[in-house]
Simulated scan of single mutants.
Amino acid sequence: MSLSLIIGCCWVLAAAVTAMLPMRRQLLPGLALLMVAPVLIGAIGWDYGWIPAIAAFAAFVSMFRNPLKYLWKWAKGERPEIPK
């Protein structure tokens, strides 16, 4: 197993732990995971090709669908509500 897959597995575990935190404590680790994901997906794509990279991207979008929806609405100029 390559380093990119080992780091990817650690990323998935960190995302799962972050999802179990209360909403107010998810912000900083969630942002860090959100920023690291494209680099990690690129590394997986570099090592294994575009099909595993697409699978990793699909998993990323599935895990971060709500933050990505929020960022999309915010980028469009809307003011989405943050859950408590």
Rank of each mutant, 00 (worst) to 15 (best):
M1H: 07
S2G: 09
S4C: 09
I6K: 14
I7N: 00
G8A: 15
C9W: 11
C9T: 06
C10P: 00
W11C: 03
V12T: 13
A14I: 03
A16W: 11
V17K: 05
V17E: 03
T18I: 01
A19H: 12
A19G: 04
M20W: 14
P22D: 04
M23E: 03
R25Q: 14
R25V: 08
Q26F: 07
L27H: 04
L27F: 12
L27M: 11
P29N: 03
L31G: 14
A32R: 04
A32G: 15
L33M: 12
L33K: 12
L33F: 11
L34N: 10
V36I: 14
A37R: 02
A37F: 10
P38E: 07
V39Q: 05
I41S: 08
G42V: 02
A43E: 08
A43K: 05
I44Y: 07
G45F: 07
W46F: 09
Y48D: 08
Y48Q: 14
Y48L: 15
W50Y: 03
I51P: 00
P52D: 11
P52N: 12
I54Y: 05
A55H: 01
A55I: 15
A56C: 11
A58P: 01
A58E: 05
A59C: 13
A59T: 06
A59I: 06
V61Y: 05
V61H: 02
V61D: 01
S62N: 05
M63Q: 04
R65D: 09
N66M: 05
P67S: 06
L68I: 15
K69C: 05
K69D: 12
Y70M: 09
L71V: 07
W72H: 07
K73F: 12
G77I: 07
E78D: 11
R79I: 08
R79Y: 02
R79G: 00
P80N: 15
K84S: 12
